[in-house]
């Protein structure tokens, strides 16, 4: 199987990028995530799967502290990026998010031009010294997101005028323009048609060469196609975490097996 081949290649040269130990998340009194331990490797695609409401998106949002913006959300335990605790009191989430980018379920381009959408991150973080450098960053990011050829003649057109798949690739370009090390993707293809989905999946596979990619997905086929490692969440707990091939062919936990064979979820 092609996927299996890829996994083996990928796992060979991976190192730990994000480490999570004993992560608990509460929304008010609701214990949404229970005691999660995960190591996410660099230059790898890690997929989080599980039924709706299992906590996979919640966990994803912990990794760049997007949960900070939700009132009443409390995170316990330890999450490290390159060995540094991202919840340490001295850490500014603004700096963290520049290094851990995120792409959302529904494409959410700003109501600005395509260029301004991509340039937004570099501008606020001051990554470019002058217009030429900014142009270069924008072009590189759009190329990397496989969108350059489609939009290079209309960079000043509004980003909201693109098709759904293009919008999502624009959002990916926007995320990688700040040169993050990790890319978090929250069901990035669930609002797209099959062709756009295929393009995004292809893109994710390419992004693996430069970033650590974490993807939350509903579709087990998608997880199997794009990821090298897979974590299965159920009812707020991490049930099983391992190589994608092993999870899908030989799950250790009966709950994982039930889910991938379609009995729960």
């Amino acid at each position: 199987m092609n996927t299996m081949q890829k996994v083996e290649n990928a796992l060979a040269d991976s190192e730990i990028k994000i480490g999570a130990r004993g992560v608990q998340v509460y929304y008010g009194t609701n214990h949404a995530l229970k005691d999660v331990d995960v190591d996410i490797a660099d230059k790898t695609v890690t997929a989080f799967i599980g039924p709706s409401g299992c906590g996979k998106s919640t966990f994803l949002r912990c990794l760049n502290r997007m949960n900070d913006t939700i009132v009443g959300c409390r995170v316990e335990g330890q999450i490290t990026l390159d060995g540094e605790d991202i919840y340490a009191p001295t850490v500014d989430p603004v700096q963290l998010r520049a290094r851990v980018g995120m792409v959302f379920q529904k494409p959410n381009p700003f109501p600005k031009s395509i260029f301004e959408n991509v340039a937004y991150g570099p501008r606020i973080h001051g990554l470019a010294r002058g217009r030429a450098e900014l142009d270069e960053i924008v072009e590189k990011s759009l190329r990397r997101a496989a969108l350059w050829d489609e939009v290079k003649d209309r960079l000043t057109a509004p980003g909201t005028g693109l098709s759904g798949g293009q919008q999502q690739r624009l959002c990916i370009a926007r995320a990688i323009a700040t040169a993050p090390e990790v890319l978090l993707m929250d069901e990035p293809a669930s609002a797209l048609d099959p062709i756009a989905t295929a393009q995004i999946e292809e893109l994710i596979d390419e992004l693996r060469s430069a970033f650590s990619v974490v993807i939350v997905t509903h579709s087990m086929q998608q997880a199997a196609r794009v990821s090298q490692k897979t974590a299965f969440f159920h009812l707020g707990s991490l049930v099983e975490f391992g190589e994608t091939g092993q999870i899908f062919t030989n799950p250790q936990d009966p709950r994982t097996e039930s889910y991938i064979t379609g009995r729960i979820g």
Binding site: T90, L127, R143
Partner: peptide, 15 residues
């Protein structure tokens, strides 16, 4: 293609 690299500093110090 290489990603745009800016000098990385520790998360724990605020630049």
């Amino acid at each position: 293609m290489t990603p745009v690299q800016s000098p990385r500093r520790s998360l724990l110090t605020v630049d």
